[in-house]
């Protein structure tokens, strides 16, 4: 059975992986830059193990890829399938968030 590039395939890495994908939507970044970006712009602190667990899973699923470079830290880039997955994730959650806001208002 092959793993499909869908948010469901991310399993329990769903949340951190989505944060990584969202961070990479604005451009390629290396691990530390992703960590800082998620912390500063999204308000989530990703542990180093969680971050690299999510990166490894995303590479395996073909949602991101490493850019070859001479630097020690490889920048990662989101792929089309990653963009698709993050869009689907947001499409799924947007109506739920909207409903929640409406009910709590």
């Amino acid at each position: 059975m092959t793993e499909k590039a869908s948010p469901a395939a991310l399993g329990r890495f769903g949340e951190p992986a989505t944060l990584v994908l969202l961070s990479l939507v604005s451009g390629p970044k290396h691990g530390y830059a992703i960590m800082l970006n998620v912390e500063e712009e999204m308000g989530f602190k990703l542990g180093p193990g969680t971050l690299y667990g999510a990166i490894a899973k995303l590479i395996k699923l073909g949602m991101i890829r490493a850019i070859k470079t001479k630097d020690r830290a490889k920048p990662y880039q989101i792929t089309d399938s990653g963009r698709e997955a993050v869009s689907e994730y947001l499409r799924t959650w947007s109506p739920i968030i909207a409903l929640g806001k409406k009910r709590l208002a």
């Binding site: 290396h30 542990g47 193990g49 690299y52």
Partner: peptide, 27 residues
Amino acid sequence: EFGQEFDDLLAQRPMSMRDRWDVVVHA
């Protein structure tokens, strides 16, 4: 695949107990 950059990332700032636990669990 990730060893070098992972160690570099950890060297960039002091590790909290939570970070250490996170690394051990994921390893």
